[in-house]
Amino acid sequence: MGLSEQRQHNRNASAKPFFWVNILFFCSLYLVAIGQGGHKPCVQAFGADQFDVGDPKERISRGSFFNWWFLSLSAGITLSIIVVVYVQDNVNWALGFGIPCLFMVMALALFLFGRKTYRYPRGDREEKNNAFARIGRVFLVAFKNRKLKLTHSGQLEDGSSKKCKGQLE
C-alpha cells in the first residue's frame, strides 16, 4: 500500500495538480483522522453501554463483546487490506476509495436503523455539571487547599484526607 501510494504521489507531483486540489486532498485526509478519532472510541463505548453491568450475566457478555468486537475489526481490516488494496492498485483509485465510502454509508444507515432499540445510559445519576468540570474542580480545590496547608497548620489537610480515605475504602 505504502509503495503504491508513493508511486501515485510521484505521478501527481509530475502532473502538477492545481493548488486547490491539494488543499482538498489534505482536508479530506484530516477529515478522515478526525472522523476516526471521534468514531473509534465512541462507537465501542456505545456498544459496551448496551450491556447492563448490574446483571452478572450481561457483565460477562460485555467482556465477550470486547473480544468479538476486536475480532470483527481485525477481520474488516484484513479483508480490506486484501481486496481494497488490490482494487486501488489494479482498477482505479476512485473505486478504491469509493468502496470504503459506500461501506461507511451502509454502516451508518444500519446503525440509525436500530436507534429506537438502543439503550442510552445517562450515567449513574442526573448531573447538572459535565464530568470535566465536576472532576476538574476536585483537583482545583485540592490544589488550593494544599497552599492553605502551607500557610496555616496541617490540621485541615489531615482532617480531610482521613475522611476521604473512609469514603473510598
Binding site: 472532576i135 474542580r137 476536585v138 482545583l140 480545590v141 480531610s160 476521604c164 469514603q167 473510598l168
Partner: peptide, 23 residues
Amino acid sequence: MLPGEGGLEPCSSRDVEDAMALV
C-alpha cells in the same frame, strides 16, 4: 469531602471518588 476555601463550595464525595479513580 474536601473542605472548600472561601468562595469554593466543598466537592461532593462522589466527585472526589471519580477524581481519585482517574489518578
